[in-house]
């Protein structure tokens, strides 16, 4: 069993490593259990066991700049965590967008210009509306990331607002779909200009993927935030 002073020492050490809180909770438990095992098996004092555990984690938790556009110092552990989390959200976004994009593509062949224009507008508005609804419905939970802005509560919090950023390109798509519905529909049939059609098709795909990516991040944020609430008193 560890006393409160020892637990605080571990917690403060991990907070200096700038780990997101949902990950820190796990690493803290790992540290504590590892230290207790070392104390029991090798008859070490708390200080010596902590020193050994810190040494073992040193390479993983050491922040450094590994090149690239971002000048931030990041540890290998966080790089791997970020990559896995981003990858999961992107793949989820892609998986959910494929049916929607395919539906838009196929609808262009079976609907007239005006109906197609409204169909696209309703579809895009519904998806963005869902992301917005989720945000408003769980506003209090999402506000926690702002309230504790000196810490990252979970890595998912960085991606929950992507759907707001893409509202501007989406408005352009909606405007074209309503004002020039016939030419807009023709673009999706790839009959006239292939490259122009491809550009519009990829733009709309990007918008849809981004919204679903954001929805996936929101869902994961809400799941993780439940687990960090008991830790917030230490921040």
């Amino acid at each position: 069993m560890m006393n409160e002073i020892q637990l605080t020492e571990i917690r403060n050490y991990l907070l200096t490593k700038k780990l997101p809180i949902d990950i820190l909770i796990e690493v803290q438990d790992h540290f504590v259990t590892q230290i207790l095992d070392l104390q029991r098996e090798e008859n070490l004092s708390f200080e010596d066991a902590l020193k050994m555990v810190k040494k073992q984690w040193h390479d993983e938790l050491k922040p450094y700049w590994k090149g690239g556009m971002n000048l931030e110092d990041v540890s290998d552990f966080m790089r791997k965590m970020r990559w896995q989390i981003e990858k999961s959200n992107i793949l989820e976004g892609l998986k959910l967008s494929i049916p929607v994009v395919m539906l838009i593509f196929l609808a262009a062949f079976f609907m007239n210009g005006i109906v197609f224009g409204f169909f696209v507008v309703i579809l895009l508005t519904t998806i963005v509306g869902f992301a917005l609804y989720q945000y408003i419905k769980n506003f209090k939970e999402f506000q926690l990331a702002k309230k504790y802005n000196n810490h990252v509560l979970t890595l998912h919090q960085n991606s929950i607002f992507i759907f707001i950023i893409i509202i501007s390109p989406m408005m352009n798509i909606i405007s074209s779909a309503i004002r020039h519905s016939d030419s807009f529909q023709k673009l999706f049939t790839f009959r006239d200009s292939f490259w122009e059609s491809l550009f519009v098709f990829l733009s709309i795909s990007l918008v849809v993927v981004s919204v679903f990516y954001s929805i996936s991040a929101q869902k994961n944020y809400l799941r993780q935030i439940k687990k960090v609430k008991t830790f917030l008193k230490f921040l």
Partner: peptide, 14 residues
């Protein structure tokens, strides 16, 4: 630990 936790989080997200 550097290999374990990223995979656990990925599996949970999936």
């Amino acid at each position: 630990e550097g290999a374990l936790y990223p995979i656990l989080h990925k599996l949970e997200n999936d």
